[in-house]
Design a protein around this nucleic acid. Structure first.
Lengths: 247, 247
DNA sequence: CGTTATCTTGATGGGTCTCAAGGTCTGTGG
DNA sequence: CCACAGACCTTGAGACCCATCAAGATAACG
């Protein structure tokens, strides 16, 4: 069962990019003001629009970040893994959290109150620079996704999404690379801007080719290379691309 | 004609969010290491993949930020206006600039060498916090756009894009709100994930209703309210929403 | 006044969504 | 162990949105 706040083990911070380059005193400073909390699968950690009281980082588990629109449309923005921060955007902006956070598995999070972390950044500027680097990485990722959603067909988008998931949350097995947390076709659809039906159809096709293997809330990538090829391959019909085709 | 680097007027920094809350000494510090440069329309300021030598801010004019993919697909990520920074992402990441920057109008930019600005942030942490706020705002904007591209139809996406452009670059006239820089149907298509043909058709429809007025590289929004309604309205066909329809 | 870039509009086809039905797996309680 | 309910997944058929192909109109520019 979930228990209340308790004092974290200092070692957990050493794996987190936010504190890279911080000296021992800085670590002590950071850890002294943090608290940790257990999370159970399905739990709502925060919701869109709620005031941002704290900044979160995940120590263990997976958390789904999703955003809903006025028209009821939902999009899954990302899955957070161990060592990553989440709920950080709200810290710098009015209007509360811009998205929902729901636990995809049981886990443990560590959190800081917003003003505490701000003060920490002013005392230790390197933490602010690390935060910039993290946010920058996420912004770039989102920009790539905007381009992808703007220009690529569904099949390629799904391939790209699976490649990213495999990199981020893949567990190597002798059968291939396995996504290490439960994910539904519906969620894959909401990550790629399509429906669960299309995701199912596309993945069935790949399964027939031995590229992936699907199951209930479960994905195994049998041929990662083939998936990458689908994700990046140039479109076969290229009228203006001779290049040794026999001319 | 464009002239070489020259010493900027200190007053230009006062309008920039990056330096909010900085003391006089800090301003002097920042200005001492900057240089400015003229930009002519159509000029390529930097290209995707090029090493990031400097961090840019726009003093006057408009700059288009776009990203191309391996498959040749182009997406316009945003238009930068006076007071905004651009090319900042590359500062925190390997791999050079993640997008192209092309001048949409003549203008003037101010720039800092990357290591200089990093050092400035370490000396003045408030600048790093301001940068976080800016990047956070852009990240949120991109997240909203991902959701929009994932869930909304073309007409609504175009409406949303025009609403944003009107807010960001709108000039009030007695006829309505006018986008204050030249923009083509092609570019609008690359901002919304569609083709110039569809943009043209949709806008022709709106023009017939008196909502917008189009021209060559020119958009005038005659009824901003109607455009917002199109951008936000719930989808008319709602089977499970009786609500006084007469039954 | 020709050249080029931009914009408009029609016709057609295909990629995906929607609607619909059924199948499979998981967990629960008797 | 078995029955049952619920969540998840698969697959088919049809409709529709929108990209694509194609042709021409209009405006800027030298």
């Amino acid at each position: 069962m979930p228990q209340g706040p308790f004092r974290p083990d200092p070692s957990v911070l050493h794996g987190m990019a936010l504190f890279n380059g911080l000296d021992a005193a800085g670590y002590a400073d950071a850890i002294a003001q943090a608290r940790t909390r257990r999370i159970v699968r399905g739990e709502v950690i925060f919701t869109q629009g709620a005031p941002c009281d704290a900044c979160h980082a995940l120590i263990d588990g997976r958390v789904k970040i999703q955003q809903g629109g006025a028209d009821g449309g939902q999009a899954v923005l990302r899955f957070v893994g161990p060592g990553e921060m989440f709920g950080t955007l709200a810290m710098f902006m009015a209007g509360g959290y811009p998205a929902d956070a729901v636990a995809a598995t049981d886990g443990v999070e560590i959190l800081w109150d917003t003003p505490v972390l701000r003060a920490l950044m002013l005392r230790h500027p390197v933490v602010a620079l690390n935060a910039l680097e993290m946010l920058g990485g996420r912004l770039q990722e989102m920009q790539v996704r905007v381009r992808e959603l703007s220009t690529a067909r569904v099949e390629r988008r799904i391939a790209n999404t699976l490649v990213r998931l495999a990199r981020q949350a893949g567990r190597r097995t002798e059968e291939g690379v396995e996504i290490d947390f439960p994910i539904t076709r519906q969620e894959l659809g909401e990550m790629t801007g399509t429906t669960l039906h299309t995701v199912s159809r596309v993945m069935s096709g790949w399964e027939a080719q031995g590229i992936v293997e699907g199951g209930r809330q479960h994905v195994l990538v049998r041929k990662p290379h083939a998936l990458v090829a689908l994700a990046e391959d140039l479109p076969p019909p290229r009228p203006a691309a001779p290049a040794a085709t026999g001319g």
